[in-house]
Structure formats: C-alpha cells, structure tokens
C-alpha cells in the first residue's frame, strides 16, 4: 500500500542483526535491554550476532555466583537474583531450535580483565575480525554506546 511512497519502498526483510555491546554486569541496564531485544528478534527468526567488548566481556563470566537476597527483601525480590550471564546462556541454548545467536567476546578485553579462561560454554572468544564479519554480514547493526 506504500509502493508509491519512497519512505516505505519495498524492503528486504531483516534476517541478521549485529549488536555491538560494551556495557558490563551491574553497570547499566543496557545488557538486559539488549538481551530482551535479542530474544524478541530470535522469536521472529532473525539471527542475532553480539560482539561484546570492554566491560561486556564480564557478562559471560561463568564464575559469576547467584547470591541470596537479604531476608527482609526476599518477599519483594525473591530468593536470589540471577546474573545476566544466565539469560545469555538461555538465549544461546534457545538458538539451537530456531534462529541462532552467536556471542563473541573480545579476546584482548577478556585477557585484560582476567576472564578469558572463564567464559561460559557457547561464548566464543574472538577478535575484531569477528566484528568485521558480523557487521559486514548484517542487515542491521545496533551499536550500544558506552557511558562515561
């Protein structure tokens, strides 16, 4: 119905999205928002490739421990709160049965933070070459800015 409108000209439906993320655990909401959005994209059959660098390499640290909430807060918050990495793990596994998500952790950033050897299963330790491939192969690129 928008065929004559250049703004709504026929577009190829997006099949692959690249997300560039630099925000780590417990800094801001960005990782959670990214994962919420990634889940919605995967549900639509869209492949999601995340390139995590700087503090975002800590998101996939498998050594993160779930802590119990203080007794007074348990009625509100529940028994404990899961680290963001749990959500990533679930999305990586969900991709086994539909659109897939690849999660690449920058090797230099991971080495600098001592988490290279602590990456969870499914997370790929990679390089800027992976970012190049993700961006080059994406129909849509979303770069989440760092806040300083």
């Amino acid at each position: 119905m928008h065929n004559d409108d250049p703004v709504h000209k026929a577009r190829k439906r997006v099949r692959r999205v690249a997300i560039v993320l630099s925000t780590g655990s417990y800094q801001r909401e960005a990782p959670t928002t990214v994962l919420r959005l990634a889940e919605k994209l995967l549900e639509r059959g869209i492949e999601v490739n995340v390139w995590a660098f700087e503090e975002a390499v800590t998101l996939t640290n498998r050594e993160q421990i779930e802590h119990n909430e203080p007794p007074s807060l348990k009625p509100v918050l529940g028994e404990s709160h899961a680290p963001v990495g749990r959500f990533i793990d679930q999305l990586l596994r969900a991709g086994l049965h539909g659109a897939k998500m690849d999660w690449v952790t920058c090797i230099l950033c991971a080495q600098e933070r001592g988490v290279e050897k602590h990456q969870m299963g499914g997370a790929i330790v990679g390089t800027l070459g992976d970012l190049w491939k993700f961006v080059g192969g994406a129909d849509q690129v979303i770069a989440i800015p760092a806040y300083r």
Binding site: K12, V14, V17, R44
Partner: peptide, 19 residues
C-alpha cells in the same frame, strides 16, 4: 514494547542510532 520494536527492526531501518 520490545515486541513492537523488534517488529519494526525486522521491517528494516536505513540507520539505527542508539543513545
């Protein structure tokens, strides 16, 4: 909601600026 946003992204944008 993010369902709406995902639908819009699936339709494609010429550019996305995330602030």
């Amino acid at each position: 909601d993010l369902d709406h946003l995902a639908d819009k992204i699936a339709d494609g944008f010429d550019n996305i600026l995330w602030y």
